[in-house]
């Protein structure tokens, strides 16, 4: 029995070594020291698991500063000049300028469309803004996993089939209560008005002699016309790409948090 367990452990270790050997560069680089060591190892495990299973490297990089480089170039170069697979998704967080950037390469471009990236960023950027980096990276990794799985099925998430955003409980409760209060105010206002029947009569409509309205002059003069045109919002699908300094094609996008 003990033998079996030790063989199993050795096998596990070997597999882990093999996997590590394949992705030579680390999937998590926390240069900005945003995570505790516990969080970091848990996240690294998760990234390794997803990357191995999907065959797409999901990389997270945090830095204090990009040293004057554009976040896009910095992220693209990081992916290009390290030893990653040809398919990958990289999230860069730069603390000094509060920048985040997602750079996609190879199959990552297919899996993460422009619309898909907007959806993903809506989920994890609020955590970045709150300073909850572990949750932000966790959410990011899980969503990448989900998006790659969807893309493998042949129909990547895009404008027409984005997954549902989680239900916003607090916001919905507040909005529902405000609507309820306004409706209640209108309804009780109506009940209140029923109690007050003594009102001034502001018009004398009942005393108009029927048919006595006579128009001696009636003129409708056209003055001028104004035409405004606004562009209709175009819904684009797919991913926009660009070429990095090393000549590799990358997709992705980013912003501030």
């Amino acid at each position: 029995m003990k033998k079996l367990i030790s063989i199993f452990l050795v096998l596990c270790l070997l597999t882990a070594l093999c996997l590590a050997a394949h992705a030579a560069s680390p999937l998590l680089t926390d240069d900005a020291q945003l995570l505790t060591s516990g969080e970091a190892s848990a996240l690294e495990q998760k990234l390794t698991e997803i990357s191995t299973r999907q065959g797409v490297d999901v990389v997270i990089v945090t830095v204090d500063s990009t040293d004057g480089e554009e976040p896009m170039d910095f992220a693209d170069d990081w992916f290009d000049y390290n030893d990653y697979r040809a398919d990958g998704i990289l999230l860069l967080v730069s603390m000094e300028t509060s920048d985040w950037w997602v750079s996609t390469t190879g199959y990552g471009i297919t899996a993460i469309t422009d619309a898909g990236l907007e959806y993903i960023s809506d989920q994890f950027v609020p955590y970045l803004s709150d300073g909850d980096f572990a949750a932000a990276f966790d959410t990011f990794a899980e969503l990448c996993d989900e998006f790659i799985t969807q893309a493998r099925g042949g129909d990547p998430y895009d404008n027409h089939n984005l997954p549902k955003e989680p239900f916003k409980w607090a916001l919905n409760v507040v909005v529902a209560l405000v609507i309820g209060f306004v409706v209640a105010l209108i309804a009780t206002g109506k009940m209140k008005r029923k109690l007050k029947t003594v009102r001034q009569e502001v018009k004398a409509d009942s005393y108009v002699t029927p048919g006595s309205l006579q128009l001696t002059a009636s003129r409708d003069l056209f003055l001028y016309t104004q035409l405004t045109k606004t562009e209709r919002p175009q819904s684009s699908s797919g991913s926009t790409t660009h070429r990095s300094s090393s000549g590799t094609t990358h997709g992705g996008g980013g912003g501030k948090f």
């Binding site: 002699t209 006595s212 001696t216 606004t230």
Partner: peptide
């Protein structure tokens, strides 16, 4: 159309003259 939304506002000046009778207010 397929690319733009158009809004056309035309301005007019109207004038009305006339009379109206009321009885026993």
């Amino acid at each position: 159309d397929s690319r733009y939304n158009y809004t056309q506002t035309s301005y007019f000046a109207l004038s009305r003259s006339g009379s109206l009778q009321f009885t026993r207010i």
